[in-house]
Design a protein around this nucleic acid. Structure first.
Length: 287
DNA sequence: AAGAGGCCCTGATAGC
DNA sequence: TGCTATCAGGGCCTCT
């Protein structure tokens, strides 16, 4: 469930470890990710040198020195692992399998550098890798995505205007990447809790003050989560490595039937399916 | 055109 | 024990 903060953590660690490295070899075990990996993929990557790793929304972008790019999306279960050539794992990302041990199944892509390899693991195969020829093609791919919460474009006028007259509920707006990009199902519940807004409230019924809160707390939650190394859900091995800590600070997510954490409130956290996605909220203090 | 819902996929878990 | 059903959720696609 990598949302913006988790992808940001992966980006930061990847950038540290593989910047300026040259790709020596690529091995694909399974091409059937969200988008089928073309046969020429390996050949196209060989000898490319990594300039830097950047991120937009939930997308990792490997920038090569020849001004081409490789976009990586982790889908819901994708993880990236870096392994020293001695087969000893030196680093893992933060989402599903923050185990010291490398997962055995579903290691679909292996990219080899000098004394280091990068492994892409993704049991559910909702993620993808895509090579991009130039900056224009990159912009084209992202053109339908709304601004990130941190962007100046995600401002009061934009939010009010976007929600005006809309019947759709605010929770679905928060996870709608055309409205704002980077927020997923977990953080949407957390943001609305801090805003004290009911997830089912229709866009058109939000006051200006509430729109302001949406902006403020979207930024607040994502920033806080990045500071804590993101959230690690279902970390069943629970060992060393780059395990996120923000899941310990969830106020409502997966806290059904617990009391509302707000001091003045004695409500009980409820779970409700909103368009097939679990949503958590306090029915007393969220209006 | 807005919005709802289906679908892709595997693994963990619950219930019988 | 082994079976089946349910849930997890990002994003694309179709249908109304």
């Amino acid at each position: 469930m990598p949302e913006l903060p988790e992808v940001e953590i992966v980006k930061q660690s990847l950038d540290q470890k593989i910047k300026l490295k040259k790709i020596n070899k690529v091995i694909i075990k399974n091409r059937n990710l969200r988008f089928k990996i073309p046969l020429k993929f390996e050949k196209n990557l060989i000898n490319k040198i990594i300039k830097k790793i950047t991120r937009f929304s939930k997308y990792l972008i490997i920038n090569f020195t020849d001004n081409t790019f490789c976009i990586i999306h982790l889908g819901m279960s994708g993880t990236i692992h870096l392994v020293e050539e001695s087969k000893k794992k030196i680093h893992t990302n933060t989402s599903f399998y923050s185990s010291q041990k490398l997962p055995i199944k579903h290691n679909h892509i292996k990219i080899y550098f000098h004394k280091l390899k990068m492994i892409y693991n993704d049991p559910r195969r909702f993620g993808f890798f895509k090579l991009v020829k130039n900056k224009n093609e990159l912009l084209e791919l992202f053109k339908n995505l709304g601004p990130e919460p941190f962007s100046k474009l995600f401002n009061l006028m934009y939010v009010c205007k976007y929600l005006r007259g809309k019947n759709k509920n605010i929770k679905n707006f928060l996870i709608d990447q055309k409205f704002v990009s980077g927020i997923g199902n977990i953080y949407a519940s957390e943001i609305l809790y801090l805003c004290k807004i009911k997830p089912t409230k229709r866009g058109k019924n939000l006051s200006k003050k509430e729109c302001k809160k949406i902006i403020y707390f979207s930024r607040y939650i994502l920033k806080k989560s990045i500071q804590k190394g993101g959230s690690t859900i279902r970390d069943f091995k629970n060992v060393l490595g780059y395990t996120g800590k923000f899941q310990n600070e969830f106020r409502v997510y997966q806290r059904e039937n617990l009391t509302c954490p707000s001091k003045q409130c004695e409500g009980i956290i409820k779970k409700k399916f909103i368009t097939n996605r679990s949503t958590f909220f306090c029915s007393v203090c969220q209006k």
